[in-house]
Amino acid sequence: MELGSNSDDSKSTFCLVNEDHTFANSIRYTLNQDPRVTYCGYSIPHPSFIRVNIRLQTTGDPAKEVFKDGCLELMLMCRHVRSTFDDALTEFKKTKTS
């Protein structure tokens, strides 16, 4: 769900259900690396709710598009980490069987 101003699409709050600090902090970090982002932060309204609010403000680009790009970038980073780990594990197993 996206909450924001109808007149300014460069500022939005995204409410994500079934997410916690793991995703929220990762996407916050990724978005803050984007030069189009002027502010990105997150909050968890209450510990008993499995929900996170991510506030995003951009230099003028639509916040929805920047958020989507940030999610794609985070996905690519996760794939790279997974691939690097799998390669290292394969190499480790080869040295143990030799």
Rank of each mutant, 00 (worst) to 15 (best):
I50V: 08
H21S: 06
P47F: 02
T58K: 03
D69V: 07
K68T: 10
K68V: 09
I54M: 02
D20E: 11
S48H: 01
C15K: 15
Y39W: 07
G70T: 01
V52H: 11
R79C: 13
S43T: 14
R79Q: 15
F49D: 13
H21N: 06
R55A: 06
T58W: 05
M75P: 00
I44D: 03
S26R: 02
F67D: 06
D34P: 00
F49K: 15
V66E: 03
G70I: 01
Y42F: 14
A63W: 05
C78H: 13
L31M: 08
L56C: 06
P47W: 01
Y42D: 06
E73T: 14
P35I: 12
R51G: 06
C78V: 15
I44G: 07
T58E: 06
F23H: 02
D34H: 01
M77I: 05
V17R: 13
E65L: 11
R55P: 00
E73G: 03
P45W: 04
D61W: 00
C78K: 12
S83M: 14
N32G: 04
K64R: 12
R55F: 09
S43H: 05
M75S: 12
L16D: 03
H46S: 13
F49Q: 14
L31Y: 04
T38E: 12
T59L: 10
H80T: 13
C78L: 15
K68C: 05
F67G: 07
V52T: 13
L31T: 02
P35R: 11
K64Q: 10
S26T: 00
Y39I: 02
S83K: 15
K68R: 13
Y29V: 05
L74F: 10
R82C: 06
T58D: 05
S83W: 12
V66D: 02
L72M: 10
P62K: 15
G70Q: 01
A63F: 05
I27H: 03
I50H: 12
C78Q: 13
T58L: 05
C40Q: 01
D20G: 09
V52M: 09
N18E: 14
I44R: 14
S26V: 00
T84I: 13
R28M: 04
N32P: 02
N32Y: 01
K68Q: 12
G41E: 07
Y42V: 06
P62E: 14
R51H: 06
R28K: 10
E19S: 04
H46L: 12
S83E: 15
Y39D: 00
V81E: 06
V81R: 07
N18K: 13
R55S: 10
D69K: 14
S26A: 11
L16Q: 04
V37F: 03
C40H: 01
S48A: 09
Q33D: 02
K64E: 11
R51A: 10
H21V: 03
L76W: 01
S43D: 11
D34C: 01
R55T: 11
P35M: 08
L72C: 08
H80E: 14
M75V: 06
N18P: 01
Q57G: 00
T38F: 04
G41R: 05
